[in-house]
């Protein structure tokens, strides 16, 4: 059974001025110098490796952690590694006000939860969510709670399509399951 309720520690991707970082592109997430790597388990150590202030992220991240990023997360190239590197670290989900179109497709296709959250900028600005807080998110209904502060907020729940692919374990597996039905 696929998991739908995630409890984890939060990383809020802010710059040194305390603003949520926008337009984080795929080279900042996973630099093109490592595109030759094909083994997913090798990719984790390069996650956010080119993002100013976050280069040590892989050594600090723990399985189950949750990422909150600024708008247009994953802009740029179509590299799948920019999604897989987070899966390798066992990050459970990423939320952002919006995502790059291809990045979003790649994540959905590989069964990795990416969730839009319109209030994220306001929440981060008012420090209603901070790095280190513990959050609980039900991705079926989009209900989220900062258990460190008690604050609740809403994320866009998985669409029915996203959920079908997620439950099957990715796009290719979903094609198989379509046949079996």
């Amino acid at each position: 059974m696929s998991e739908f309720v995630f409890k984890g520690r939060l990383w809020v991707l802010k710059d040194d001025k305390g603003n949520l970082i926008e337009d984080i592109d795929t080279d900042q997430i996973y630099h093109n110098a490592y595109l030759h790597i094909t083994d997913i388990s090798e990719m984790g150590r390069y996650a956010l490796g080119n993002l100013e202030g976050w280069k040590d992220f892989p050594s600090k991240a723990k399985p189950g952690d949750i990422i909150a990023a600024g708008r247009n997360f994953g802009a740029g190239s179509s590299r799948q590694q920019a999604v897989d590197c987070f899966a390798a670290l066992k990050i459970s989900l990423i939320m952002a006000p919006s995502f790059g179109a291809i990045y979003f497709r790649n994540a959905v296709n590989s069964g990795f939860p990416v969730l839009k959250c319109a209030e994220l900028e306001a929440l981060a600005e008012k420090e209603h969510i901070k790095t280190g807080d513990r959050v609980e998110i039900d991705i079926r209904i989009g209900k989220a709670r900062n258990t460190s502060t008690g604050e609740t907020f809403q994320v866009e729940p998985l669409s029915s399509v996203q959920r079908q692919i997620y439950e099957a374990g990715g796009l290719f597996a979903f094609a198989q399951s379509m046949e079996e039905r």
Binding site: S78, F104, R105, N106, V161, L171, F172, F174, A175, M178
Partner: peptide, 19 residues
Amino acid sequence: GMGDVDITFAFKTGKTWFE
């Protein structure tokens, strides 16, 4: 235009998802 994962699925099923 789409990546090779998407197009593989399209070849196999004749469908795609779209926002």
